[in-house]
Amino acid sequence: MLEGEKNHIKQAKRGNKEAFGLLYDHYLPKIYRFVLLKVSSRAEAEDLTHEVFLSAWQNIHNYKDRGHPFSSWLYQIAKNSVIDFYRTSKKNLQVESVSEEFVKIDALHPESLNTDLEIEKLKRLIGLLKPDYQDVLIMKFIEDLSAEEIAANLDKSEGAVRLIQHRALKELKSLYYGDPNNNGTLTHEA
């Protein structure tokens, strides 16, 4: 949580650009990663992330603190944006063609090639999981949110979050290390 976040939100609600800028700087990487792991390219992730923060800026006067972290509001906008994106564009996340662009860009740095390939493989496999599994894994292991925060963000109980996390990890492991039941050619519609 950003230091003095409540005050920044209060100022941003009054139209203070600097205050919203601080919120933007703090949450942009998290929302960007969350979106990127659900779409097929950096360009799409950038467009959607921009839409998320633009919507947040234009609607922050409607934001009400109900005890949930501010990030849960942003994650909810991001989730809805991704759903709308797939609904309107009718795009399927083709596993075979995921993020070639992503690999090509980062392959310009040979020292990070192995890491980039691993990241790309993980990203591709996460895309095969159910949306709830994706959300929990991203929030838990990439954004380091607690089970309580994840539960608030996803409007689920902490017990349900732990159960989803266990099942998601199990499924991801089976995909990563090779499971005869998963041949890696599945097509998942987000």
Binding site: G15, K17, F20, G21, Y24, D25, L28, P29, Y32, R33, L36, L37, R42, E46, T49, H50, F53, L54, W57, Q58, N59, I60, H61, N62, T115, E118, I119, L122, K123, L137, I138, F141, I142, Y176
Partner: peptide, 29 residues
Amino acid sequence: LLTKLKSIEPNKEFKERSRALILNSPQSG
């Protein structure tokens, strides 16, 4: 392995461009 995904960062140019566009848009709400 999953924590390696933390290294994903938005492009700096995108970040600055998007930030400027958002903050210069009217908060009609």
